[in-house]
């Protein structure tokens, strides 16, 4: 899978605008995210990870700068078009009763279905493919309310896959999960980025896992903005140390990382 730049940010400022005041969360963000790669966004709470993701998925409008998706400015996309370009997995927990996994994954087909939302044969095939790819065939007929957090997360990822978008954003997909599930979800996303050539961009607090699994990291900080690089390079050039005031943690991680290399 060749990597090409699918998302590019130029001097982007994110934040909230209300009638009376504008709150800037992050300013002057510049960078690119590529297809066929798993990119992880890392930063402390309040560093603006969610705001950035919300801005990239057009839930929030940027306060300044440019975002372009597949070579076209984000603001030129209509809601309709966007639903076929970006799929999201959010932190909000869907509280659904009496809907099966298959039905929920099927909702991912909504941008393609007609007036009544009826799934065609092709839609069903896409849903099946998404379910198989995520490896939840055994859950297919289960009701959403009976699933564990990890299973739910996989279902939402399958939904995003069924949506057939080249780009998938995930906001802290590994939060609330136990360690094995965290590893499983990140490996799954990594595999999807390779096999399906998706551009996958996710925020996470699991630094150690991200260092091991991600292809590229975005370190985000309120004062220093973002630093982008492959994990290896970020560890070696001391960016990680500088990034976290808890140098002890960074040192431990570096040691661990070096051990892994050997």
């Amino acid at each position: 899978m060749t990597r090409t730049e699918t998302i590019s940010l130029k001097g982007l400022s994110t934040g909230y605008r209300s009638k009376h005041k504008t709150t800037v969360v992050a300013r002057d963000l510049t960078g690119a995210i590529c297809s066929g790669e798993l990119t992880c966004l890392i930063g402390a709470n309040g560093s603006g990870k969610s705001t950035l993701l919300r801005t990239l998925s057009a839930f929030l409008s940027p306060l300044g700068g440019e975002i372009s998706l597949l070579g076209r400015p984000l603001r030129d996309y209509s809601d309709r078009e966007l639903s076929k370009v970006i799929g999201v997995v959010l932190t909000e927990r869907v509280s659904l009763q009496n809907m099966t996994v298959e039905e929920l994954v099927g909702m991912g087909r909504s941008p393609y279905t007609g007036f009544w939302g009826r799934l065609s044969k092709e839609d069903h095939a896409q849903v099946d493919a998404a379910i198989t790819m995520v490896g939840i065939d055994n859950l297919r007929g289960r009701m959403i309310q009976t699933l564990s957090d990890g299973e739910r997360q996989k279902v939402m990822i399958a939904k995003a896959l069924a949506q057939e978008t080249p780009i998938i954003f995930l906001d802290e997909p590994t939060a609330f999960l136990d360690y094995p599930s965290k590893v499983e979800i990140l490996h799954l996303l990594h595999r999807l980025s390779r096999e399906a050539g998706k551009t996958i961009f996710l925020s996470t607090h699991d630094l150690e896992l991200a260092l091991q699994i991600a292809d590229r990291l975005w370190l985000m900080d309120r004062e220093r903005g973002i630093r982008i690089g492959v994990p290896d390079e970020l560890v070696r050039d001391g960016s990680l140390d500088r990034f976290f005031d808890h140098t002890e943690l960074a040192r431990r991680i570096r040691i661990k990382f070096e051990m892994l290399e050997k």
Binding site: S57, F59, D79, R80, L82, S83, K84, I86, G87, V88, L90, E92, V94, S95, M107, G108, S110, P111, K159, Q163
Partner: peptide, 9 residues
């Protein structure tokens, strides 16, 4: 929910 619904167009 609003977020997912919006993302689906």
């Amino acid at each position: 929910g609003d977020g997912y619904a919006r993302n689906l167009g």
